[in-house]
Amino acid sequence: MRYILQFAVIMGFTLAGELPHLIVPLPVPAAVWGIVLLFIALQSGAVKLSALEQAGDFLTGMLPVLFVAPAVGLMACWDAVAGQIVPMLLIVVVSTVVTFAVSGRVTQAMMRRRKESGDA
């Protein structure tokens, strides 16, 4: 019963995420609004972590498995990309690595500076 209730709470926030998705004129999907709403609810104390903890951990643990099917689906869209596969792969790989490096280094550099100046 506990897991059923937990799952119900999670599905409730998933459903609630569809509301801003309909109102706010931005292509932000319900899943992202759902993260925002659930985080606000937890942080404000409106919802206790224990009300969804185990079912939530199970679901986030499932995340990687859920990307197997879309990855297999790449087989089906081969025709759309085959002609430009080399430049596209190059762009995807290079821009991902550059984005990774810049975002990580900027964050790490600013954290170090804050620690050194000691204003915690």
């Binding site: 999670i10 599905m11 926030f13 998933t14 995420g17 999907p29 319900a30 899943a31 992202v32 759902g34 993260i35 925002v36 709403l37 659930l38 985080f39 937890l42 972590l49 969804l52 903890e53 939530g56 951990d57 679901l59 986030t60 499932m62 995340l63 859920l66």
Partner: peptide, 9 residues
């Protein structure tokens, strides 16, 4: 979708 929402946890 619900699994992504749970990333708030």
């Amino acid at each position: 979708t619900p699994a992504t929402v749970c990333l708030a946890i």
